[in-house]
Amino acid sequence: MSARNVEGGTPVRAAPRRELTLGAALPLLAFLALAALFPFLPLGSRAEFLLQIAFFTLVAGIMALSWDILARSGQVSLAHAAFYGLGAYGYALLLKAGLPWALAMPVAALLAGGASLILGAVTMRLSGMYFAIATLAFTEVVRTIIQNLPESVAGGATGLLVPALLGGNSRAQYALAWGLLAFTVLVSLAVRLTRLHFAFAAIRQGEETARVLGVSIVRFKLLAFFISSSLAALAGVLYAGKTFFINPLETFSLANSIAPLTTSIFGGLYTTLGPVLGAGVLRVAEELLHNSVKNGYLVVYGLVLMLSILWLPRGLMGLRRNKKHGGDL
């Protein structure tokens, strides 16, 4: 575990990977099992409210984990809100065009994934702050475009009504969110356990070296963007279907880029368990604070991000003492 370096030299990084064992997957499975059991707990009179918090915790998990998948390829993006929003708006507009929801959902995800290829192609050669600034600007512009489309198309600044997902049945909605988180976890594990892991990690840790070793950065960077953004769009679909009403300001809010980034760093970058765990902790903290103050509850994310950078560069995953545990999943 890395203590804080006075010089601040401890990079945000993962430990060198060891061979993987099945044991590493156990906490992940336990977390998913607990999440699956949640609606069956005796939740009492506040069941509906608690279920809603749990629903958005799952959405936060999808966002954080999908953000992490992109970060693994060295692309620290501030555009996740854009793809979340494109998913939400794409879904709403596809429903308006008459598509059934079960079709609108994957199509919206694929469309957002396609849009991410445009951003990815433009930012291909950018790194560090240039990349961050470009992605931040991209989000603002997608929002501006949606907001300035004729109101008859996308509702303008006011927003759009979205039919409730699954007829508004909150247990069914929860089950769907759980399924999509489980799917995201599977995708993340697939990325971790296949050649994609080596490609992403090599690009992140030394782009030029990776190219010299034959890693096609164009292909893998775009692939990372596509996977990550499609999953973020699925989270956006869940959001749109749960809140019935979407507007540009909230849907494309910077908060939707900040939260996944912070959650992933807090939980443990470049892992599967970390972002999911981080979402569990941070989303609940956010809700508790939201209960007592009306505005500014996102302060949690600012604070946690700063503290993580200064004192906890490996996030929660770095706290585990058991190093024999095998590679972080």
Binding site: P11, G128, L261, Y301, M306
Partner: peptide
Amino acid sequence: APELNQMLLTFGLGIL
């Protein structure tokens, strides 16, 4: 620290 840490720190500060 690496550029990424600096960037994320000031970003966190902004949110805060």
